[in-house]
Structure formats: structure tokens, C-alpha cells
Design a protein around this nucleic acid. Structure first.
Length: 153
DNA sequence: GCCAACGTTGGC
DNA sequence: GCCAACGTTGGC
């Protein structure tokens, strides 16, 4: 069964336009266990809200889909990478990534402020105080509600 | 295993 | 730039 997710990226580092240009792209650099575990649960064709963080305005920029199941994040083995982790080895990789590609960029980004105002979405992990998770599951009901809101806007 | 110190995230 | 919240590290 297909699942729904949200992934955060700082657009200065990797934006939805970058994803569009590059086609299927590895989601490297995740160094948080909870986020990693969620990526391991992802399956090809799962849909992902592409979220722009640390920018104005922050919010959901569009939709991507998973094109490759989790596999070891090779940047963790590269001493020259900002994501290098000496505790991750090829024999026992600690960090994983998936590939995603763009499905759709929204004509207008759905700002975080709108999501916060929506009483249907108060349970979303994204909106919880202090939530910093960069990869998280989205309930299908929330997914549909958000899509419906932006389609009719 | 506890917990203080530190580093990071990310909205504002 | 500020700072609250969170995760990780490392001494004990």
C-alpha cells in the first residue's frame, strides 16, 4: 500500500526547482535516526510533500515521488563530504537515502502559516511545537485535505 | 544509566 | 540574529 510523506529541504541547498532540473535525485545527508528509519519504510511510488524550510515563506512547495527504495548514503563514507560519518562503513552502513523525483510543483507554495490555521491539521507532526524532524509520515486524510485545499484555492 | 554541555534545527 | 526545542556526546 502506498504511503504519504513529507521531506524538508532548505531551498538554498536543494529546492524543488533543483529537483525538477535534476530529475530523480538522491536524498542524501540525513543524519537523524528517526528520519532515517522513516526513509527505510519508504517504497517506490510513495508520494512526498516537498517542504521548503528556513526560508520565507516556509511551506509545501509541491509533490515528489519515491523512485528508489532506501540504500546506503555513500556521502557518509566520504571524508571530504560535509555528511561524513566515520562510524558508517561500507560493511555496516549507518545512514541511508532514497531517490525521489518531481511530480508537481504547486503554482503557489502552501505556506506553513496556512497549515497552522487549518483546524483539520492540528495533529500533524510538522506543526507540533519544537518538531525538527526532516522526514515524516503524513496521514492520508491530511494529505487529501491539504491537496483539496490547494486545488480549490 | 544519568545528565550537563554542546551543537543543530528552524520559525520568527 | 534570537532562541526554544531537540538530539547527541561524553564524563562520571
Amino acid at each position: 500500500m502506498s504511503q504519504y510523506w513529507l521531506m524538508k529541504s532548505e531551498p538554498d541547498a536543494f529546492s524543488i526547482d533543483d529537483l525538477k532540473q535534476q530529475g530523480p535525485s538522491p536524498w542524501d545527508g540525513v543524519r537523524n535516526y528517526q528520519a532515517r528509519n522513516f526513509m527505510k519504510e519508504m517504497k517506490i511510488d510513495d508520494l512526498v510533500f516537498f517542504y521548503h524550510s528556513s526560508c520565507k515563506p516556509a511551506g509545501i512547495a509541491g509533490i515528489a515521488k519515491v523512485t528508489r527504495n532506501a540504500y546506503p548514503d555513500h556521502t557518509s563514507w566520504d571524508p571530504n563530504s560535509a555528511y561524513y560519518d566515520p562510524k558508517s562503513t561500507k560493511e555496516s552502513p549507518r545512514w541511508f537515502m532514497v531517490d525521489i523525483e518531481l511530480v508537481e510543483k504547486f503554482p503557489v507554495l502552501i505556506p506553513l502559516s496556512s497549515l497552522k490555521q487549518d483546524p483539520e491539521l492540528t495533529d500533524m507532526a510538522l506543526l507540533k511545537k519544537g518538531s525538527r524532524l526532516s522526514v515524516m509520515p503524513i496521514l492520508e486524510s491530511h494529505w487529501q485535505h491539504i491537496l483539496q485545499s490547494t486545488r480549490s484555492a
